[in-house]
Write a protein that binds this DNA or RNA. Structure first.
Lengths: 114, 114
DNA sequence: ACTGTATATAACTAAATAGTTATGAAACTT
DNA sequence: AAGTTTCATAACTATTTAGTTATATACAGT
């Protein structure tokens, strides 16, 4: 159940970096070019370009061409996939805990009987 | 809104590795000792111990002591935090798209008027 | 055509990651 | 008490990552 999904490797790895999460946060407000993204982070422009490439590889961001600018915009699909994975696990966990809870209850009943 | 959360660094980084996700998948069925976890993956025991340490550091797993065994069990809380983060972003995205949709609609109306 | 702006790419470094083998420490078995 | 099992830790290697500076490319404005 819930087999391995290699796409999640790239998505979770991309989300593991706080700078990249901040970039995504910025992109929620709309597309932005590299320069605009680099400004708030005390980081060089090439560093931001690299982060964008990681996000792009994970499918979280899409680039376009506008003259000499290459604005980035969000692509929500992979986030949805990651979210689904997490939610499925949460469900399995809760099922597991409910089950455990059931066991504990029946143990308690036996205590009462004894 | 939705400030930086350093705990997510460790959680997403932990989830980025397929072996670790497989370990979590196994642990959904109940706690397991290192040996049991190492068996299905063609990996050395120390490698699995390291993965467990990463998962533990992310708060996703808890160890206990049972004689010479050190079984690992799941801790769902950090998963919930990650899931919340993703869901919040999804919501922001959708809001953004709805807004964009609104803009497109009004543009369409102006087209009609013209 | 010349200058400046926006970005990518290359080459490099430092640190982190994922794996290995070897070994040591507890605890269990007989 | 001796041997076996279970696990952690150390030491090492190879790969990846996150950053840097320097440079090249392409477009924009004058």
């Amino acid at each position: 159940m819930l087999g391995p999904d290699p796409r999640l490797d790239a998505v979770f790895a991309a989300l593991a970096d706080p700078t990249r999460r901040a970039i995504l946060a910025r992109l929620v407000e709309g597309e932005a070019a590299v320069g605009e993204l680099a400004a708030p982070f005390s980081m060089s422009q090439p560093a931001v370009s690299k982060h964008l490439k990681v996000l792009e590889h994970a499918g979280l961001v899409e680039r376009s061409i506008d003259g000499s600018r290459r604005p980035a915009r969000l692509r929500p699909e992979p986030l949805a996939a990651a979210s689904t994975w997490l939610e499925d696990y949460r469900a399995l966990w809760e099922a597991r805990f409910d089950q455990l809870d059931g066991v504990l209850r029946s143990m308690a009943r036996k205590e009462d009987d004894a």
